[in-house]
Design a protein around this nucleic acid. Structure first.
Lengths: 188, 188
DNA sequence: GTCTATAGGAAGATAGAC
DNA sequence: GTCTATCTTCCTATAGAC
């Protein structure tokens, strides 16, 4: 039996995350958030009393949970390293619509360069992904340090390809990046 | 004999670019731009009648010229591919302060996802860099298509490392990326 | 060219009815 | 929980003095 309230929250947070992803934190006004959710501004404040900052915080927490349920859990199953990285590559294609989407972690880390209120959540999300990817590289026979480097290289490739795909208005850099990922993590 | 007016313009554009780089386009108010330049808001409007958008446009044009004079011209000299990529790696270390700076091209391409007024200038800057890097890879014996891919990989690595360095609050991803670049462009 | 002063509007946020 | 109405603050932009 599904919790109705949670489903509504998930819809809400999904709509909010879409706005932050497209417009960035500063570029997303409460009015925009009102439009994408269909709720008037005071209703948003009723749900998120601390306003836009709380919305972004809960969006990041929602995304972390999504990653756990839709990526990390699968990577804990009894699969080969090749199967795991192929699944990972497929999932990031879905998340980023093959390079058409920006990454909300990049968009929200670009906010108020000093004292960014989201930096810890963003840092933790990247660290969690790095650990998961690193475990795959270890399973494939790399030592711990080499595995960590390869995992970091994967994250660098993803973020860089997203920046370039948006800047060059082409999904080609993203799609080429997807093809490189398995070798970056697993090549001998 | 130096053109005084031009020097003042360069200072001005340098200060403006620093604000856009740190706060992004939407996050940078005219008041912030007034503070970093020391000019009151109406003085900025006197110099840039179309306001913030014109300032960002001229900043991007200023950066393109800086790249031409400080990177591309050197790469046209009679040097080995190794010398060229090493010089390039050194210059991006300077530009990005070894990973402590964000890239203004990433920050300004993140603006108003639809109909971004800076997308053409940003696209052109990346294309110009890709051509210059590609020429180095060709000089090193790669065919044209492979050289273009390697040049794109370089730009992906730089942008991705900058995103990750900011997100993880560490210059380590940027410094590791710098070490990878020569091989990415030139390895056989 | 630079400034003080200010208009006009959009932003974040709240009061209080339903 | 959602709304209309409103407050205050900050923003962009301009008028006009020096």
């Amino acid at each position: 039996m599904v919790n109705i309230k949670k489903i509504e929250d998930e819809d809400l947070l999904h709509q909010l995350s879409g706005a932050f992803k497209d417009y960035g934190y500063e570029g997303t006004s409460i009015t925009i958030l009102s439009k994408v959710t269909g709720l008037k501004r005071p209703s948003l404040y009723h749900r998120f009393p601390r306003g836009k900052e709380q919305m972004a915080e809960e969006v990041l927490s929602f995304i972390y949970t999504w990653i756990e349920e839709n990526i990390l859990n699968k990577l804990k199953e009894n699969l080969t390293p090749e199967e795991k990285i192929n699944f990972f590559v497929h999932q990031i294609g879905k998340i980023y619509e093959n390079g058409k989407n920006s990454c909300i972690l990049n968009m929200l880390s670009a906010t108020k360069c000093e004292n960014n209120p989201f930096s810890e959540a963003i840092n933790n999300t990247f660290k969690t992904l790095q650990v998961a990817l690193s475990d795959i590289a270890v399973q494939a026979g790399n030592d711990r340090k080499e595995a960590q480097n390869r995992a970091e290289n994967i994250l660098v490739e993803i973020q860089g390809a997203l920046v370039l795909s948006r800047a060059m208005n082409s999904t080609a850099p993203f799609k080429r990046m997807q093809k490189r990922l398995p070798d970056i993590l697993l090549s001998r």
